[in-house]
Amino acid sequence: MQPAARRRLLVVLASLTLALLLADLAGWAGADRLRSVGGLVLGPVQRALSGAPHDELAAVQAENVRLRTVAAEQQHRLDELGRLEELLGSGVTTGRTLVPARVVATDVSPLGGRSVTIDVGSRDGVRPDSTVVAADGLVGRVTAVSPWTADVQVLGSAGSVVAVRVGPAGTLATVSPPAAGDSESRPRGSLRLTGVVPATPVVGDVVRTLGSVDETPYAAGIVVGTVTAVDPDRGQLTRSATVRPAIDVDAIDVVGVLVPTARSTTRPTTRPTTRPTTLATTGPTTGAPR
């Protein structure tokens, strides 16, 4: 219906409604009959007026929903690109070959921990025991590979133990999920640090991966987390502590798989340089110079 026609109908409707109101207020005996006639006349007009705007409103609402969906998808893609740029620009990937990936599925183990599926596989150069990282640090390791996807055991899963170095001194230790019989109460999602050599960790110490041969399953120097609490000294030889992981396992999205680079040539050897020593002769000499 055209806007001009709709305005004329609104004027007619308002006039008839006003006439019915005045008739009721005046107590006119024919008001009931006028009301019934008005209903017959105004009913189709009201339906015509209400029908068109309702259809238009429904169309506008549907378009609004579509535009919001498109905007949300575009924002999600921008967020992913931002996280990918952050990953590629982080120190985690410096000097390493990286296969970017996105988490497409997740599974929580009844025994504790989490595994995720990423959208890259053997066709992309991914192989089992590859290190998986995010911009903030270690995610976990690849446990199974198919042509197009790979399964990743996330840091802190049941049975996972990672060799690490702690603090500026690089003290040797391991991190693992809290055990059922752990004497200390640890926050959800935290890790248990166990020293390998006698040493006392300090709150705030950064924990990094020790590294493995050919960088499998864990490349060296990847941030695992930060020491947040040190367990009381109960006379044990080594001290344990609580570590907060560098990544949020509940919000893993864009990750990178580090492609291991096997050493193809022998490592060059070096020998320390020795300096010749000069022996000094003391005491009298015999003979005269000629």
Score class of each variant (00 low, 15 high):
Thr261Asn: 11
Asp250His: 14
Leu210Lys: 02
Val223Ala: 11
Ser185Thr: 14
Asp205Ala: 08
Arg263Tyr: 05
Gly204Gln: 08
Asp248His: 05
Arg192Cys: 06
Pro260Asn: 09
Ser240Leu: 01
Gln236Phe: 03
Ser212Tyr: 14
Val254Asp: 08
Arg186Tyr: 09
Ala251Gly: 02
Asp253Lys: 12
Tyr218Glu: 07
Ser190Gln: 11
Ile247Glu: 09
Arg208Thr: 12
Ala180Gln: 12
Arg188His: 14
Pro198Lys: 13
Tyr218Gly: 02
Thr226Pro: 04
Asp231Gly: 04
Gly225Phe: 07
Ala220Thr: 11
Gly256Glu: 05
Asp214Ile: 02
Leu237Trp: 10
Asp250Trp: 13
Pro232Gly: 02
Thr209Trp: 00
Ala251Arg: 15
Thr200Asn: 07
Ala251Met: 03
Asp253His: 14
Ala180Arg: 13
Ile222Gln: 11
Val255Glu: 12
Pro245Leu: 10
Val196His: 07
Pro217Val: 10
Arg188Gln: 15
Val196Asp: 12
Ile247Asn: 11
Val207Met: 07
Val196Ala: 11
Val197Tyr: 01
Pro177Leu: 07
Glu215Phe: 05
Gly225Val: 06
Ile222Gly: 05
Ser176Cys: 00
Arg192Pro: 01
Ile252Phe: 05
Val224Trp: 06
Arg188Val: 15
Val254Glu: 06
Ala219Gly: 14
Val257Arg: 11
Asp250Ile: 04
Val196Gln: 14
Val257Phe: 11
Gly221Arg: 01
Val197Asp: 08
Gly211Asn: 08
Gly256Thr: 12
Arg244Met: 11
Gly195Val: 04
Thr266Trp: 01
Ser190His: 15
Ala246Gln: 03
Ala179Gly: 07
Ile222Arg: 06
Ala251Cys: 02
Leu191Pro: 04
Thr261Arg: 15
Pro187Val: 14
Gln236Leu: 08
Ala180Glu: 14
Ile252Pro: 05
Ser240His: 08
Asp233Cys: 00
Val254Lys: 06
Ser176Ile: 00
Ala199Leu: 06
